[in-house]
Amino acid sequence: MSAISREEVANLARLARIEMSDAELDHLSGEMQVILGAVARVQEVASADVPPTSHPIPVNNVVREDVVIPSLSPTDALSGAPASSEQRFKVPQILGEA
């Protein structure tokens, strides 16, 4: 496996929305190197003819009927909000549009 660079870790931190100091990035890229080296072992046996398993117990078609059940009260819904206003969650300005 090729080495994982500090820049790559910085990009992962960006994707994961975690601010990281230079020291954290340095430390983590070192650790990632070691961990990835260890976990890459999965590739030894993961041949093309083996199907992947995403769910341990195979079950299909679990659905619910389209029935309305009571929602939380707005007070409960907003109870954990760091900030709220006008019965809405108040958040810092959203820059950029998805």
Binding site: I4, E8, V9, L12, A13, L15, A16, I18, M20, E24, L28, E31, M32, I35, L36, V39, A40, V42, Q43, V45, A46, S47, V50, P51, P52, T53, S54, P56
Partner: peptide, 28 residues
Amino acid sequence: KRRIILGTYALSSGYYDAYYGSAQKVRT
């Protein structure tokens, strides 16, 4: 943080098959 970064890597395009995908096969 360590695990989030590791998981972000394992799922990212270009690495998915080698890491997450292979791990799912091992699961099988």
